[in-house]
Computed example of a mutant assay.
Amino acid sequence: MVDMDSQMFGFDAPFSAILVGTSGGIGNALLEEAIKAVAANTVDASGHVFAINRKKQPSEYPAVTSLTADALNEEQLAETVATIKGSLQQNKFAPIRLILVAVGSLHTSQGTGPEKSLRSVTAHSMQEIFAANTVAPALAAKHFLPLLPKSGRTIFAALSARVGSISDNQLGGWYSYRASKSALNQILKTASIELSRTRPEAICVGLHPGTVDTKLSKPFQANVPDGKLFSAEQSANYLVQTLSRLTAEHSGQVFAWDGTPVPA
């Protein structure tokens, strides 16, 4: 279970962080956790947070730089990387040791929800869901992982979902969402192998945040057990505690909010 005494994502020194997709409920709550973590070091205030969204979201915190980039636009991602590199050098910020990717989608832009049967599957909806849940995190890994230092503990984590587990699929349905999260988990596993060759202490994982009380989850909350519907703040806090306990031996896996592994 979650160790509520864990601190600072498990880092014992000042660090900077990149968060991709902080406009949603969980993403914004993770941003708040990252801000608290980098501010927790009173001896060295060099920690900084770079928050990246499709639309710029100004922050009142001096330790946060808000940047604008579409996670599916590689030119914008490359420009963002250059900006972060320049800021790290110019301001002498602590190195990037944490990258959190909270982009993803349950519904299409037309408001179509998860498919209940194969009759509802369309090429357009599958492509859109895969773009948000699989392609965007993969591109974030491609562009931001090189910013991690080659020594010391580092983390790259992306929001996944338990329904992405193939062996745990007991109910069927949700074709595009399930498949896109399964594909994301494979991306993370493969990236973890590549990452280990140059950064042996790096951690690359997926995170299942549980069922979070947001507008998108409202239609699916009826069957959630008592005590298992979380606020965004609860979920983010649990995820932080889970990340705090991970080591490089856990890299390539997916973990639920309570720290238990999600089967492949």
Rank of each mutant, 00 (worst) to 15 (best):
T68C: 06
T68I: 04
T68M: 09
A69D: 13
A69M: 10
A69Y: 05
A69L: 10
D70V: 08
D70R: 01
A71H: 04
A71K: 01
A71L: 04
A71N: 04
L72V: 08
L72Y: 00
L72A: 14
L72D: 05
N73A: 01
N73S: 12
N73E: 09
E74R: 04
E74I: 11
E75D: 13
E75V: 10
E75I: 07
E75H: 03
Q76R: 01
Q76A: 11
Q76C: 07
Q76V: 12
Q76Y: 09
L77D: 11
L77E: 08
A78M: 09
A78Y: 01
A78C: 03
A78V: 02
E79V: 06
E79W: 00
T80M: 04
T80Q: 03
T80Y: 02
T80R: 00
V81L: 07
V81Q: 03
V81E: 02
A82Y: 03
A82V: 11
A82G: 05
A82F: 04
A82K: 13
T83I: 02
T83G: 06
T83S: 12
T83Y: 05
I84L: 09
I84G: 09
K85Y: 01
K85A: 14
K85I: 13
G86T: 13
S87V: 06
S87A: 14
S87M: 08
S87C: 08
S87D: 15
S87W: 00
L88R: 04
L88S: 12
Q89V: 15
Q89K: 15
Q90H: 12
Q90N: 13
Q90F: 11
K92I: 15
K92G: 15
K92E: 15
K92W: 00
K92P: 12
F93D: 08
A94G: 11
A94W: 02
A94R: 00
A94L: 07
P95E: 06
P95G: 04
P95T: 03
I96N: 11
I96D: 07
R97F: 05
R97K: 13
R97M: 07
L98V: 13
L98H: 01
L98I: 09
